[in-house]
């Protein structure tokens, strides 16, 4: 077999997720923006920081009244910690080693997760006193606290510095934008690699399972009826007929889409028992018909990618009779 095919893959919603937030998170993030750490009182677990909307033990709604809210900290105590040896600079707050810790702010009954900056893990201990180091440009995020830093004994933590006024104004924080970018390396797999090897030669590779006579164009590895691997290679013609199609009039659906209107069709290739989806070009959209005979248009430069098969275009032969493709609709 040829070299396995692998490729980088990124999953990222462009612009970041737009999260609406409930009243409790709103109040907390608004507090952080204004340089204050707020907690909410619960019946079963005391003052919760960070605050949640529901009692963690009883699921009762909490925080409905202003009296349920208290300011805590700013000093706090470390309850647990870890030293991050190799920070993930793209996602974590610092690119130099730092600590994550569970910190219980004074006046709170629960600990919150945040970063602690010290010069060495030896400077960390359970019970150590810390205080927040506030950012100046605060927008209503847990990252408005840059990090927590050691609080020398006898020192009163300073108030948060006034924040840089920006376009966000002074109203309550009502949402957050959350970029999430995840990196993957994807393997094509044996069957797809075989198909793409065919693409590089201007051929459509098919597969068949030993227990069946049915041939799959662009097999994904098995005969999906039985789960049996399509271990027998079968070359399929690059001609066939359109079984059905639609005319797409929406521009910009994907980077690969041609100018509208364009035709996206199911093509039953000669020698295959399943249809594949493909673009139809080489004629006007309104001329495309069910049963129309088509032929692959190969790229001038063939590569081991789907792009080698650019689209299908009419051959000019008479249309296939309905009976030839009626079982593939």
């Amino acid at each position: 077999m040829a070299e396995p095919m692998i490729a980088d893959h990124i999953v990222e919603y462009p612009g970041g997720y737009t999260r609406s937030i409930g009243p409790a998170i709103s109040r907390y993030l608004t507090g952080l923006r204004d340089g204050r750490i707020l907690g909410v009182k619960s019946k079963t677990a005391g003052v919760l920081v960070p605050p949640v909307e529901y009692d963690p033990n009883t699921s009762e709604e909490i925080g409905g009244s202003d009296d349920d809210w208290v300011e805590v900290g700013p000093a706090g105590t470390v309850e647990s910690f870890t030293w991050v040896r190799r920070p993930r600079a793209e996602k974590q707050p610092f690119s130099q080693p730092f600590a994550f810790a569970l910190i219980k702010p004074d006046g709170a009954d629960t600990a919150m997760l945040h970063a602690v900056v010290v010069s060495s893990p030896d400077d960390l201990s359970i019970g150590m006193r810390v205080m927040p180091h506030w950012k100046v440009a605060r927008s209503g995020s847990v990252r408005d606290i840059e990090a927590w830093v050691p609080l020398p004994s006898g020192v009163t933590p300073p108030a948060a510095p006034p924040r840089t006024v920006n376009a966000d104004g002074e109203g309550a924080v009502t949402g957050l934008i959350q970029p999430i970018k995840l990196h993957y390396t994807i393997s094509a797999g044996v069957a797809t690699t075989r198909y793409l090897d065919g693409m590089a030669q201007g051929k459509i590779a098919g597969g068949r399972a030993p227990g069946s006579t049915e041939v799959y164009a662009a097999s994904r590895g098995t005969d999906p009826k039985t789960g049996e691997p399509t271990s027998i290679d079968v070359d399929i013609a690059d001609t066939g007929c359109i079984t059905t199609f639609c005319v797409v009039n929406i521009p910009g659906l994907s980077a690969l889409a041609p100018p509208v209107p364009f035709v996206s069709a199911h093509v039953l290739l000669d020698g295959a028992d399943n249809t594949i989806m493909a673009l139809i070009r080489g004629c006007e959209a309104h001329e495309v018909r069910m049963g129309m005979r088509v032929k692959a248009k190969w790229a001038e430069k063939l590569t081991r990618t789907h792009h080698s098969l650019e689209w299908f275009e009419p051959t000019g032969e008479p249309d296939a009779p309905y009976d030839d493709y009626k079982d593939n609709l």
Binding site: R19, V84, F100, S141, R143, L176, T185
Partner: peptide, 30 residues
């Protein structure tokens, strides 16, 4: 296919935890 220790942070609190992105091993260490 990915880095599971980093990836699975997307199962944590999206408002309070994800912005700091502790890895799965960071959280386990706590």
């Amino acid at each position: 296919s990915g880095d599971p220790l980093e990836l699975l942070t997307v199962q944590t609190d999206p408002y309070y935890t994800v912005p700091l992105w502790p890895s799965m091993s960071d959280m386990a260490a706590l």
